[in-house]
Simulated scan of single mutants.
Amino acid sequence: MNTATDEEANIELGDRPSCESKRQRAGIEHIGAFGMRTGDSDLIFFQGILPEINGDVRGDEPADAQVSMCLDRLELMLENRNVTLADLLKVEVRLTDVDALETVDRVYRERFENVEFPPRSVVGVCTLPGGAAIEIDVVAAEE
């Protein structure tokens, strides 16, 4: 059985790991219904946390400010559920510029200074809603 390589199959990967979806091109008014909790478990899911203030995504702010805004929003969401950063089980960070990871790490360390780091994944993406440079999803546990 012969398997064609990418070169033999004339597959062009381009400069980006993926293409924008229609939802991404259409702006934040089409970002979907991100859930905050599913089922009757003690797990809480926060999805699509963007650097926004009063519904306005601040994609033009520097990376450190965007990370801080996302973490500020996350802490408010956690507080509303009577949990804290110490209750996080998993964090996923999506970045449009993976070179900003050092900045993300610096702000992250400052915010989690007295808290054990939860497991974290960082994923590079082409674009995010509203032109944001960062988006965060987390799973937390109500104890």
Score class of each variant (00 low, 15 high):
residue 56 D to R: 06
residue 56 D to N: 12
residue 56 D to E: 12
residue 56 D to L: 08
residue 56 D to G: 05
residue 56 D to S: 11
residue 57 V to C: 09
residue 57 V to E: 04
residue 59 G to P: 07
residue 59 G to Q: 12
residue 59 G to W: 01
residue 59 G to S: 01
residue 59 G to R: 03
residue 60 D to S: 02
residue 60 D to F: 03
residue 61 E to K: 01
residue 61 E to I: 02
residue 61 E to P: 00
residue 62 P to N: 04
residue 63 A to E: 06
residue 64 D to T: 03
residue 64 D to F: 08
residue 65 A to P: 00
residue 66 Q to R: 08
residue 67 V to Y: 02
residue 67 V to D: 00
residue 67 V to P: 03
residue 68 S to H: 07
residue 69 M to P: 06
residue 69 M to W: 05
residue 70 C to P: 06
residue 71 L to K: 04
residue 71 L to T: 07
residue 71 L to M: 12
residue 71 L to R: 11
residue 72 D to F: 04
residue 72 D to W: 00
residue 72 D to L: 10
residue 73 R to S: 15
residue 73 R to F: 09
residue 73 R to W: 01
residue 74 L to A: 05
residue 74 L to V: 06
residue 74 L to K: 07
residue 75 E to V: 06
residue 75 E to C: 14
residue 76 L to S: 13
residue 76 L to N: 10
residue 78 L to N: 00
residue 78 L to I: 00
residue 78 L to V: 01
residue 79 E to R: 15
residue 80 N to K: 14
residue 80 N to S: 05
residue 80 N to R: 12
residue 80 N to Q: 09
residue 81 R to P: 00
residue 81 R to Y: 13
residue 84 T to G: 14
residue 84 T to P: 02
residue 85 L to Y: 13
residue 86 A to D: 14
residue 86 A to T: 04
residue 86 A to I: 02
residue 87 D to C: 09
residue 87 D to Q: 14
residue 87 D to P: 01
residue 88 L to I: 10
residue 88 L to Q: 13
residue 89 L to S: 11
residue 91 V to A: 11
residue 91 V to E: 04
residue 91 V to K: 13
residue 91 V to M: 14
residue 92 E to F: 02
residue 94 R to Q: 02
residue 95 L to D: 01
residue 95 L to A: 03
residue 95 L to H: 05
residue 95 L to F: 11
residue 97 D to T: 04
residue 97 D to F: 06
residue 97 D to K: 01
residue 97 D to V: 01
residue 98 V to W: 13
residue 98 V to M: 10
residue 98 V to I: 13
residue 99 D to Y: 09
residue 99 D to R: 10
residue 99 D to H: 03
residue 100 A to D: 15
residue 100 A to R: 11
residue 101 L to M: 11
residue 102 E to W: 08
residue 102 E to G: 03
residue 103 T to M: 10
residue 103 T to A: 10
residue 104 V to Y: 11
residue 104 V to P: 00
residue 104 V to K: 00
residue 105 D to R: 15
residue 105 D to G: 04
residue 106 R to S: 07
residue 106 R to K: 13
residue 107 V to E: 10
residue 107 V to C: 07
residue 107 V to S: 06
residue 107 V to A: 08
